[in-house]
Amino acid sequence: MQNKPKYNLFKNWKYAIDGLITAVKTESSFRLELFCAIFIIAGIIFVDTSLTNKLILLITGILVLIVELINSAIENVVDLCTKEIHPLAKNAKDIGSTAVMFTISLHAVCWIALLI
């Protein structure tokens, strides 16, 4: 593959930071979820529960952000491949959105189970 650079820890770290900056600048869903994460982390700190429960809430909260980033990457690749409305392009985007929805639902269920 011609466009694959040699592995370099510092360059790869820079690519990851560039991706995060791009996501914050261009993806409104990611910005919203990142904003909500501030309050979620505060809630995790102040909720009176075990460390294990707090870690479960933190991990599922971070998982929401990870899946949103993957969904955004899928949407960008689909948009790169075609600007036309195509059933497979729609399916790819819808399936990515479903993954985000399931992850948010998992996080919400963890909060509900903890609070009950």
Rank of each mutant, 00 (worst) to 15 (best):
Ile17Phe: 15
Phe46Glu: 01
Ile70Glu: 01
Asp94Glu: 14
Ser105Lys: 01
Val64Trp: 09
Ile59Ala: 15
Lys83Ile: 11
Ala108Gln: 11
Thr82Arg: 05
Phe39Val: 03
Ile17Met: 15
Thr52Trp: 15
Cys110Pro: 01
Leu51Ala: 14
Val67Cys: 04
Gly61Phe: 01
Arg31Asp: 05
Ala99Pro: 10
Ala16Phe: 09
Asn12Gly: 05
Ser105His: 04
Val67Arg: 00
Asn91Ala: 15
Ala37Ile: 08
Leu55Ile: 15
Ile45Ala: 07
Met101Ser: 13
Asp79Thr: 08
Glu75Gly: 04
Lys90Cys: 04
Ile44Asn: 01
Gly96His: 00
Met1Arg: 12
Gly43Met: 02
Asn3Trp: 13
Leu69Gly: 03
Lys93Thr: 00
Ile45Pro: 06
Cys81Val: 06
Val64His: 06
Leu20Met: 14
Ser29Pro: 08
Leu55Val: 13
Ile21Cys: 10
Phe30Met: 05
Ala16Ile: 14
Ile62Arg: 02
Leu55Pro: 12
Gly96Lys: 01
Leu57Asp: 06
Met101Phe: 15
Leu55Asn: 14
Cys110Phe: 04
Thr52Phe: 14
Ile104Cys: 10
Ile56Lys: 09
Ser50Arg: 03
Lys14Asp: 01
Ala108Thr: 15
Ala37Thr: 07
Lys25Thr: 07
Thr26Trp: 12
Lys93Gln: 02
Ser97Lys: 11
Lys25Gly: 00
Tyr15Met: 04
Ala108Lys: 12
Ala89Asp: 03
Cys36Tyr: 09
Leu69Val: 02
Ile38Met: 07
Leu65Gln: 07
Tyr15Gln: 06
Asn91Trp: 12
Ser50Val: 00
Leu9Asn: 04
Ile38His: 07
Cys36His: 11
Lys83Cys: 07
Ala23Glu: 09
Ile116Phe: 15
Ala37Gln: 10
Ile70Phe: 08
Phe39Lys: 04
Thr22Ser: 10
Asp48Ser: 08
Gln2Gly: 12
Cys81Gly: 10
Glu75Thr: 06
Ile74Trp: 02
Val100Pro: 05
Asn3Cys: 07
Ile40Asp: 10
Phe35Thr: 02
Ser28Gly: 12
Asn71Thr: 00
Ala23Ser: 13
Phe39Ser: 09
His86Tyr: 13
Asp18Pro: 08
Lys4Gln: 13
Pro87Met: 01
Gly19Lys: 08
Met101Asp: 12
Phe102Ala: 06
Ile38Val: 15
Ile95Ser: 11
Leu51Gln: 09
Asn91Lys: 12
Gln2Ser: 14
Gly19Leu: 13
Thr60Arg: 02
Lys11Leu: 10
Val78Phe: 07
Thr60Lys: 11
Glu75Val: 06
Lys93Phe: 03
Cys81Asp: 08
Thr60Asn: 13
Glu27Tyr: 05
Val47Glu: 09
Thr52Asn: 13
Glu75Lys: 07
Phe39Tyr: 13
Thr26Val: 03
Lys25Asn: 08
Glu27Gly: 04
Phe102Trp: 13
Thr22Leu: 10
Asn71Trp: 01
Ala108Cys: 11
Pro5Asn: 05
Ile59Cys: 14
Ser97Trp: 14
Lys83Glu: 14
Ile74Ala: 01
Thr49Leu: 02
Ala113Pro: 05
Ile70Gly: 00
